[in-house]
Amino acid sequence: MTRTPAPLADRVDVLRDEVLDTAERGDRDPPGAEIFEAIVRQLAALGDSAGHGGLDLTLHDALARRLAWGDTEEVLLGDADRVFERLVKACARGLRDPEEQAAVLETASDVLTAAARIVALAAVGRAGRDRSARLREEMAQRRLRDALHEQAQTLARLEQEVKESGL
């Protein structure tokens, strides 16, 4: 009886702990998990007749969420770098078929450059937001200065009135 090998995505998924270094970094959301999962997802989609292609919105959302939770762009890029390095090594050991190794490398390359693009555009977005926020801060400062000016006048008037009353 011939054993049918598990799909490539499943065999790469088996390498999760090794690639994400879960022994060191814990099993709960280890850094770079979103990159690794995007690679596995894309590998799984290679077999689909419908194909995959296009922007991986899940990766996009996962990276956006990490940024929203306070991770910096540098940290995200660093995690991606580490995942790539460990994945290349793990696949060289774990996959015998050069065709499969090629598929993993191409997919990883797609995901990594996509991640770099997402991070760069997130930084562009942040720069735009920072610019907007700065102007809004300046507007708020203007309002506060106006209020301070008004307060100073009112304070002087009230102090005078209260003084005159002899309180």
């Binding site: 708020a140 309002r143 506060l144 106006d146 209020a147 008004e150 307060q151 009112t154 008037r157 009230l158």
Partner: peptide, 17 residues
């Protein structure tokens, strides 16, 4: 009225934050 206006101005400026 001037007191009220001064209060509102400070209130808006502070609450905007």
């Amino acid at each position: 009225w001037r007191l009220h206006r001064s209060f509102l101005q400070s209130y808006i400026a502070l609450r905007a934050g």
